[in-house]
Nucleic acid binder design. Structure first.
Lengths: 231, 231
DNA sequence: TTAAAAAACTGATCTATATCAAGTTTTTAT
DNA sequence: ATAAAAACTTGATATAGATCAGTTTTTTAA
């Protein structure tokens, strides 16, 4: 059974919809003349929560995190790989302000599309709008899963979730090189870096994973899944 | 500045879009012949997470909670008042399954719209689709605020949030009669009912609120807001 | 009206995880 | 190549909030 809360909640949204193929030739041309590619260095901010959103942002290349800023610690909503929209929710916000911040994990290229043009496409092309709705909804489903994870599961379950997600959805392999820091990992799990570290150590002792420098291998997939579900 | 995370995060989505006014006469008729009103008693389930969604659900009358079920405790995503959609995210899910459960707080009436007809409207009427996108996005913004609240704020901030939300967005008055139980309140804040109770007591001692039986009055709005922001 | 059941309240523990305070290793920059 | 900085590791302590175990109040129903 498909169930957002028993499946490991993921930090990336892997489903991809090819929205732009539904545009007419004229619409595609209109889009072409009203978009611009911008390069961002590692660690730079692509969007700032609360600031005016004059563009829809599409991540052409790279890896970014989308997060909420507040008076307490930041909350990472998701990480987004290339070929995904970054700011759809923001542009339809009544105030046209970014409802979250976006910053890069690595050098990235973003395509900025004029918000007016984008809205025009949505208003005039129902098939395009339909695809956008699909994107928004996969998004929502993913965030809900993560919401559940961070507010209901405890530390071991959260760490198991992250490992499974990185293995299955980000790197698509049992052994992968982790080029994000323990601190990033702590942010992603909503735990302290010390706690993440201790749990990694436990998982290694229990032969669920193997750690060799920056490389992590998933040894016992089923057990991790179990911990993710019940932890 | 509009900022989802400094404003008290709310459990209801108060913005309302009149989606149906954008339908043509024929579309409206098509809708009319393909919808059906169903009554639900207090405590009954309108939608069950994981089950097949053959209809879009619109809440005509009543008050419901939308929540995720999992192996741990349920997570209430939002409460929804009358004249709002209940299951938009679900119908666009690839599997057509409900991604969350919905049950009523009081006797309610729901309008069920055939999912195929609804999708047809979206695919053919871009203005209608645009409105649906707006609904989805206000929704998302609200859930993000709540996500931040439940995963970053601590107990006092969460309780302050709920009181402010009930006062400002649900009842629209400083003094309101709370006809949901302490247990419901605990569910909404993600705390234990004992903790909620203790904090209510503290707030009363500190003259932030007054409690008289089931009635709650907001006495010090600013202080509550401050607690919501920094607590 | 009164007994039974449910909800609310309160104090005493318990526990998960943060925080603090060292070390140690790795990375970076000169 | 080496010093400085950053990241990681580990143990000790602190704490927010859950859980438990009662008592009191309110609600329900006979």
């Amino acid at each position: 059974m498909h169930n957002a809360t028993t499946a490991p909640s993921c930090i990336v949204n892997s489903t991809h919809f090819d929205c732009f193929e539904h545009l007419t030739k004229e619409e595609a041309e209109l889009l072409e003349t009203n978009k611009r590619d911008v390069k961002f260095k590692k660690g730079e901010m692509i969007a700032k929560q609360g600031s005016f959103a004059s563009h829809v942002v599409f991540l052409k290349e790279g890896l970014v995190k989308v997060y909420l800023e507040g008076n307490q610690k930041d909350l990472i909503l998701k990480i987004v790989p290339d070929n995904h929209f970054l700011s759809l929710s923001s542009v339809f916000d009544g105030n046209n302000t970014f409802i979250y911040s976006v910053s890069t994990y690595m050098d990235s290229t973003a395509t900025l599309i004029s918000i007016d043009i984008f809205k025009q496409l949505v208003r005039n092309n129902a098939k395009f709008a339909h695809q956008i709705i699909n994107v928004l909804n996969t998004n929502t489903a993913q965030i809900y899963g993560r919401f559940y994870c961070l507010s209901r599961k405890q530390s071991h379950g959260r760490v198991a979730d992250i490992i499974l997600c990185l293995s299955e959805n980000v790197f698509n392999t049992k052994k992968f090189k982790l080029n994000i820091s323990r601190n990033d990992l702590a942010d992603l799990t909503g735990l302290s870096s010390e706690s993440v570290n201790r749990i990694f150590k436990e998982f290694k002792e229990d032969k669920l994973i193997d750690i060799d420098g920056k490389s992590i291998s998933v040894l016992d997939f089923d057990k991790l899944q179990e911990i993710s579900t019940y932890g």
